[in-house]
Design a protein around this nucleic acid. Structure first.
Lengths: 237, 237
DNA sequence: TAATTTAATTTCATATTATAGAATTATATA
DNA sequence: TATATAATTCTATAATATGAAATTAAATTA
């Protein structure tokens, strides 16, 4: 909690009393924990202003999370996609049997946000999420189907047979499409992202309320996403 | 400790038993803490391989440590400096009344490493450290002198008068030079880094055992560092 | 396919540590 | 200089983590 609170501040840092108010712990408790975090280097303390800021260790630990660097790589592509489609563009990665949304650029069209950055869903539930899944090897697909069977049913009412049909259709199209079948009233179009070794590293999707994405646009949007993805320079590793 | 251990692994992640061996805690304890870290998102767990990796929250928290982005900015300059001088180049920032080494590129010359990344010293003790100090405003210099007086004496045997003289000399030269006065047998040459608002954001130094850096090279090295710094594009903010 | 091994997860009484509240110290403001 | 505000330290009690063992799951071998 403390790390989050201090990190969310974008200014000159937060004072102890400030942080204490936010977190709702006792002053002495907050002070002790903050001191420990400073001692370890997770936070820094400006001795003049007595303000706490993110520390060097936090920076270093963060850099070790290489897998998420994909976010920096595809940020510009995501922005262009959102701008051109006017819908919200998502960057999603696989995390075990979940998909994890790691970036989002909102479109200009008025629409309710579906997926927050940091949100986790069963792998396959959502256009990008489905891209991570449907374009994997048959063996992987089977494993995920088995593991997530109950979660699919719970989330969308779809059974294994429905999912298999959906995957087959998407593979044929070359992109994933969830026109209301995963989330009621939501249509998404997803494309997988491959690294230089042809391994799936993530997926980008565009999603909006179904009324806003006409059937005739499906292919166009997929082509648009693929074009922006192809334009993107993906460094080795 | 656990965050460090998991972050330091560059491979596919570490298993519980692996981590347990490294940290020396009991299996159950390690498991419990790891589970909490995963729950919070600081770590991720691959459910197939049961391997722990850095998590998305760690990435996000790390990105909030903007002040250290200077490291990415000056990395190439640091590499060029180390290559050209054959000595080790350091990137150092101010942290309260300490200086903090946040990056290092080793030279080709055989020499003992003086300063580890993450190392903290009294502000002024070292060439880069001194740059952060000597080129500050007179008011700031006085405050630092007073605060660090004892620490200077302890570290180098220098008193306030000695430090004043050293600062005056450095200001005159336009770069900092610590020819054995701060660390016995070590010579360093430092240059401050300014942002677009002319605020000191860090310092770069080249350091080696004194025998390796001849007096005649002092100016050349300072000019070389400055040239590389000037070449570097420093984005707004 | 069963048996064996290895690794992961859960449980619980005891030992350890954190907490709240109060006291003290330091810093800022009137 | 007095007053107010914020930071830091202290300590008995309340809360939590630990270690050891048991259980479950997964992988390997027979």
């Amino acid at each position: 909690m403390l790390l989050r609170i201090v990190s969310e501040d974008s200014g000159q840092g937060l004072t102890l009393s400030n942080i204490t108010k936010t977190i709702g712990l006792k002053l002495s408790t907050t002070h002790r924990i903050l001191s420990s975090l400073v001692e370890e280097g997770l936070l820094g303390l400006n001795p003049e202003t007595k303000c706490y800021r993110p520390g060097f260790l936090l920076f270093e630990l963060g850099r070790s999370a290489n897998q998420f660097m994909i976010r920096d790589i595809y940020r510009p592509a995501l922005e262009r996609i959102a701008k051109k489609t006017r819908d919200t563009a998502y960057l999603v990665i696989r995390d075990g049997y979940d998909s994890l949304c790691i970036d989002r650029v909102e479109g200009t069209a008025p629409l309710r946000l579906m997926l927050d950055v940091g949100a986790r869903r069963p792998l396959g539930m959502g256009a990008a999420s489905l891209s991570l899944f449907a374009f994997s090897s048959d063996k992987t697909v089977e494993k995920i189907l088995r593991f997530n069977e109950m979660r699919f049913r719970e989330h969308s009412g779809m059974g294994i047979a429905d999912m298999r049909k959906l995957i087959a259709l998407c593979r044929q199209k070359g992109y994933t499409l969830t026109a209301g079948v995963v989330d009621r009233g939501v249509t998404g179009i997803g494309v997988p992202l491959y690294d230089r070794k042809n391994k799936i590293r993530g997926a980008i999707s565009v999603a909006a309320i179904s009324e806003k994405i006409d059937k005739t646009r499906y292919d166009d949007i997929a082509v648009l996403i693929k074009a922006e993805v192809d334009k993107t320079y993906h460094p080795p590793n």
